[in-house]
Write a protein that binds this DNA or RNA. Structure first.
Length: 985
RNA sequence: AGGCCGGUAGCUCAGUUGGUUAGAGCGCGCCCCUGAUAAGGGCGAGGUCGGAAGUUCGAGUCUUCUUCGGCCUACCA
């Protein structure tokens, strides 16, 4: 075939170009496309295939922290699950077996409450429903939300064992949880105590700190005086030795026993439970005599001449509040004086409340508010309880029974240890329209105080106080018998602290945080008085002994666990004692309390990791929000250390919380809540995943329309970069591959960059630093590929002869790029990368691939350094051309003839094999010229930077490559060869 | 109120042991291309590093205080 004769009509060379060709859409349409990919993965059984494929591989286990099975997922849970998925997928693709088993927390109050509401709506109260029926409904309710959340998580693209997740409420789990508790009991770490705890009369249950919230509440504050008891030993005043006379006068005055100690309280109903008054050693007190009273319309308990002891700093406040116009300070009263005083109960009337009320020294007493004295009701305050218990000796010496009186029942009503007028009165209304408001107790107490003349003042006030997070009703502090796991009996605290030391933390400050908490935490209160939970499967003997101490304990335990394993928690409640403990069971009773849900979730390692054959006993990683330092990380650590003497995890990763554009937390009241569902519908899950991957998750993570916009823009850039490669690689076959040594410098440069990225990548994955992975990959795509490599290679790709080495080398590298970018991005953009992957390999899945190796032989630091000089030259050329472009002198850079300052560039070009010529020596095998790199038609080295306009010369524009050239014909020789070959076909 | 942590361009992030005019990408403005085209390329304008004081020859980088925000705990009598 000969060269085509020149024709008068210029030929249209468009068809002779090798342009990228693809159906891959620029627009993703993620909201519609993603569900189809999920369907595809389900059909292909992606999770199962992954497991089979990675059998025998080293395992990497991220153990899922269970979300609560109630309500739809929110941004926080979405972030959490996506982050887990990034970690799992990337470890899997590292060549490990990252088997992810999701789980749910199913027991507990919020579900119980919802179900109670349901029954109430049907007109049934809690007592009308059989407990087993109630629990069955709770089980159904939880299951329903597990299914909803499971769908929502899967819609985010999270891969895991969704068909067989772990649930705290599965019978097998419940049995293991009971078993764990029995082991703890047998090890002697469990004990029964009676401690004032948060108690919600409305729900008739104890609450943990995590289950209360603080809100304003209107209360009655009262000032009450406790008269010194007449029949107590005389007070011996010890002076400071300097002046004896005032001391004697004071001693005489004190022994008149005609004065009172004043207290202030915001919970009048605790007065009948009062057993002591606490004072502080570091507060100055005075004995004051009332001189003048305000004129008021009601009767005051106090009279002129009455004597009161109050903290000096607070006398002014107290007197003002108590309608005392003026008073006279008679003596200073010090701690030694106070310690000898014994008081009368302010409600003493005949035999009622006729007992000595001691003065106790307490560190919790401050002079910030009140009177400097703290009314102490050991059954209704933690401090009160502590003071009371630690003064046992003093109580005994005064002939006082140190037992804590049980003054309130479960409903918050006074018990029969109270005088008749108080019995049955409620502290808080537990039903009806006024639920949560004050009951009758406060009023009756105040009335009684008025009668006794010991009420100095009363006034309404507002304070922030604990409320149940569910019913929003106030909670009270009430002593009840409870079960505790001891932090010290068997060295649990020390074990836990030692394990924390061995654990790896991301970020590292987590160690400090959980360490401080464990160091300070009290014994673990694990009992709850509710229905929906795992029972405390203990049998208590007539003297308070536990069945686990009996010689037949193992047999009993086996029966208990058998029952729970087959019937769930009902197995405990419904199996008669005789069946569980057939011998010597007189006086023995089954405990009816259930376990704190934190104990359930603290056992996930026991019933998930240790039970499943496809998981190791310990997790490599626990990963949750930073609030879980107090929660799951700790409950798991405690439970595991108590039973197995080791942490259930090797590492802990925490993330921050999702906040709005201003950094404020999301709340309904602020109206700044974004829902994952809306984002998925509008933008797609991959955008949400990109948001996670591009954020610094160790801090608060912001989300806003603008943040989403930034991510959709990033997404488009990545998508188009991949799309370009798909188009360029259309029809590419491995047989066209060019060997490394035969590649142009530019291709070897790309491979060097790939090697660089690849070698950083694994370390970043192991460090859970997906943000850096994303940013490195993204910048690589924009700076190195789109703006540099692709831009330069466009000419070779489109115009070089089809099978020329340079063009094939470019495709070889494109192919290498494609495989690495898709796999590296697959954990982040799991939907889009599957689409990209299948555009070239239909029916396969990128998620079954592992990350590609980037051979050491690709590394060429010297080449990289030389290329940097060429890039600098490029920048210089661009800067110089730019003004000309603005002046419309030069439009396309191909119109430019540039002279670039030498400045060491010559050597670099030589080293890189880049020639300074504008024509290719062998048109059939083009090799790179400086002009190619600068995307101009003509380039030379010189003293200074300058640009000439080729349009002003005799140069012609090649009709095919649009480059300006000198010579015959419509197109350059290189283009002529390419066209010839094409025409020959 | 206490403990821990954070506040670098409009947005997302880098800023090694304190050391030259504080970086990147996106967005924005202007320009080019029209053979990646609801794409691609180029140039450019934006921060004095939450605020104040201090240590230092020199601080985004150390200290103190302060402000805003987050998580946890406490808000009791």
């Amino acid at each position: 075939m000969t060269t085509a004769p020149s024709t008068p009509e210029p030929r249209d060379y468009r068809d002779t170009l090798f342009l990228p060709k693809t159906d891959f859409p620029m627009r993703a349409g993620l909201p519609k496309a993603e569900p189809k990919w999920i369907e595809f993965w389900n059909e292909q059984k992606l999770y199962q295939t992954l497991r089979e494929q990675s059998e025998g591989r080293e395992s990497y286990t991220l153990h899922d922290g269970p979300p609560y099975a109630n309500g739809h997922i929110h941004m926080g849970t979405a972030l959490n699950k996506i982050l887990k998925d990034l970690i799992n997928r990337s470890h899997q693709m590292l060549g490990l077996n990252a088997n992810y088993v999701p789980g749910w927390d199913c027991h507990g109050l919020p579900i119980e409450w919802k179900v109670e509401e349901e029954f109430r709506a049907k007109g049934k109260s809690k007592d009308d429903v059989k407990p087993s029926e109630f629990r069955a409904r709770c089980r159904e309710y939880a299951k329903q939300w597990v299914d909803v959340q499971s769908d929502e998580f899967q819609r985010l693209g999270v891969v895991g064992d969704w068909e067989n997740p772990y649930l705290t409420m599965r019978f097998e789990s419940e049995a293991v949880i009971c078993g764990e508790l029995l082991k703890i009991a047998q090890s002697g770490q469990l004990y029964r105590g009676s401690k004032p705890i948060m108690w919600s009369p409305v729900e008739q249950t104890a609450l943990a700190e995590a289950e209360v919230e603080y809100a304003d509440r209107k209360v009655s504050q009262i000032y009450v005086r406790f008269p010194v008891r007449k029949d107590t030993p005389n007070i011996v005043v010890v002076g400071d030795g300097a002046d004896i006379s005032p001391t004697i006068a004071k001693q005489n005055a004190l022994n008149e026993k005609d004065y009172s100690v004043v207290i202030w309280t915001t919970t009048p109903w605790t007065i009948p439970a009062n057993r002591a008054v606490s004072y502080s050693q570091s507060i100055r007190y005075g004995l004051y005599e009332i001189e003048e009273l305000e004129d008021v319309e009601f009767t005051l308990g106090q009279n002129i001449g009455d004597k009161l002891i109050v903290a000096d700093d607070l006398w002014e406040t107290v007197s003002k509040s108590s309608f005392i116009r003026s008073g006279k300070r008679l003596f200073e009263i010090n701690a030694a004086d106070l310690g000898q005083m014994v008081l009368d109960h302010p409600l003493r009337k005949g035999d009622d409340f006729n007992f000595p009320v001691p003065m106790l020294k307490g560190d919790h007493v401050t002079a910030d508010a009140g009177t400097g004295f703290v009314h102490t009701a050991p059954s209704h305050g933690e401090d009160d309880y502590m003071v009371w218990m630690s003064n046992g000796d003093k109580l005994v010496s005064l002939g006082i029974d140190p037992a804590v009186p049980m003054t309130l029942d479960d409903k918050g009503c006074y018990t029969d240890v109270m005088p008749e007028r108080f019995q049955g009165l409620d502290v808080i209304r537990t039903s009806g329209k006024k639920r949560g408001q004050d009951g009758k107790a406060n009023g009756e107490v105040i009335k009684a105080l008025v009668e006794s003349g010991n009420l100095l003042a009363r006034a309404p006030m507002t304070l922030r106080d604990a409320h149940s997070w569910r019913s929003k009703a106030p909670v009270i502090r009430r002593a009840t018998p409870q079960w505790f796991i001891s932090m010290s009996k068997e060295g649990l605290r020390d074990k836990a602290l030692a394990e924390i030391d061995k654990t790896q933390f991301w970020p590292d400050r987590g160690r400090n945080r959980i360490g401080a908490m464990v160091r300070d935490r009290p014994d673990w209160l694990i009992s709850r008085q509710r229905n929906w939970g795992v029972p405390i499967t203990l049998i208590v003997g007539p003297n308070g002994e536990l069945h686990t101490e009996r010689s037949d304990a193992d047999a009993i335990n086996a029966r208990i666990l058998e029952a729970v394993y087959h019937q769930g928690v009902d197995g405990w409640f419904e199996t008669p004692l005789d069946d569980l403990m057939p011998d010597n069971n007189a006086g023995w009773t089954k405990v009816t309390d259930i376990l704190d849900v934190w104990f359930d979730s603290g056992c996930t390692h026991a019933f998930c990791l240790k039970q499943r054959d496809d998981l190791p006993d310990r997790a490599d990683l626990y990963m949750e929000g930073s609030d879980q330092h107090r929660g799951w990380f700790q409950s798991s650590l405690m439970e595991s250390c108590a039973v197995y003497s080791e942490a259930p995890y090797k590492g802990i990763l925490t993330h921050g919380f999702v906040v709005d554009a201003k950094g404020l937390k999301m709340s309904k009241s602020l109206g700044n809540v974004m829902a994952p569902e809306d984002l998925i519908k509008k933008f797609g899950a991959d955008i949400v995943r990109l948001w996670v991957a591009s954020s610094d998750v160790t801090e608060e993570i912001r989300i806003s329309d603008e943040v989403i916009k930034t991510n959709t823009d990033s997404y488009r850039k990545l998508r188009n970069t991949l799309r370009y490669m798909i188009g360029a690689l259309d029809g590419y076959d491995d047989s066209e591959e060019v060997a490394y040594d035969d590649m142009p410098a530019l291709e070897r440069w790309v491979l060097h960059r790939l090697h660089e990225l690849g070698s950083e990548h694994e370390a970043l994955v192991r460090d859970h630093d997906h943000r850096t992975i994303f940013s490195k990959l993204f910048n690589f795509c924009t700076n190195d590929l789109s703006a540099f490599y692709f831009d330069i290679r466009k000419d070779a790709l489109y115009c070089d002869p089809l099978d020329s080495t340079r063009r094939r080398a470019c495709l070889t590298v494109m192919n290498a790029l494609f495989e690495r970018l898709t796999t590296w991005l697959a954990p982040i953009l799991c939907f889009t990368m599957e689409e990209v992957w299948q555009a070239r390999r239909p029916g396969t899945s990128v998620h079954l691939e592992t990350f590609r190796d980037c051979p050491e032989s690709w590394k060429d630091a010297a080449l990289f350094a030389q290329m940097a000089k060429v890039r600098t030259a490029r920048e210089l050329v661009n800067e110089t051309i730019e003004p000309l472009r603005r002046e419309k002198v030069i439009k396309s850079s191909l119109e430019a003839d540039v002279t670039v300052p030498d400045a060491g560039l010559d050597d670099a070009l030589f080293a890189l094999g880049i020639v300074i010529a504008n024509d290719y020596a062998i048109p059939a095998e083009p090799t790179d010229t400086l002009a190619d790199y600068l995307i101009v038609s003509s380039a030379a080295l010189g003293d200074a930077m300058s640009v000439a306009d080729l349009k002003e010369t005799d140069a012609k524009k090649c009709l095919r490559s649009w480059k300006y050239f000198y010579g015959d014909g419509e197109i350059t020789p290189r283009d002529a060869v390419a066209v010839e070959a094409l025409d020959a076909q």
